[in-house]
Amino acid sequence: MIWPLELVIFAIMIPTALLALWLRDLLGSVAVLAAYSLFVALLFAGMAAPDVALVEVVIGAGVTGLLLVGAILLTARGDDASEGGTSRWVPGVLVAGFLALMLFGSVDLPDYADPEAPGHQRISPDYIEGSLDDTETPNVVTSVLADYRSFDTLGETLVIITAGLACLVILLREAR
């Protein structure tokens, strides 16, 4: 939680995201996207979430890039889609409206890193104070993931296995 550091990372991330969308070479776009994910992971580490930062580095900068590169090498590398016409300004207006709505909605949110924010008051203090006594596990994220809220984790595991099954069914059905 070092303010200037987070601002600097945001200042790098926003042009990186724009570059990833702007580049015509899809492989270059994916490479820039991996760099963007690395900056997101740095930001997670700066916000005291090392678990999420580790997984974001492996998945965002690693597996996501590999999957996209694998698919792009199998198909077309260049983005030869036509630009212009109504497709440029209609989404622009829609997205500007969306951004204004989101900024207006964020006005009532608690300040960043406010210790008195309502989200920190209800159940998470119980998790933090009970983790060592209940489970002998110092890492609270792990004890909540695999013990206090393990039913949620069971469901998430089923979700990703279903996604893997869907991939195989979609692609292998006709490749018999």
Binding site: A49, D51, V52, V55, E56, I59, G60, V63, T64, L67, L68, A71, L74, T75, G119, H120, I123, S124, Y127, I128, V140, V141, V144, L145, R149, D152, T153, E156, V159, I160, T162, A163, G164, A166, C167, I170, L171
Partner: peptide, 27 residues
């Protein structure tokens, strides 16, 4: 607060699943 961390931890892995299914349709 550890709670959002674990929600996002699982969401990240589910994100790879979403990307995989989307890429399958794309192919």
């Amino acid at each position: 607060n550890p709670l959002p961390h674990l929600l996002i931890l699982t969401a990240l892995v589910v994100g790879v699943g979403v990307l995989g299914v989307a890429l399958s349709f794309l192919l």
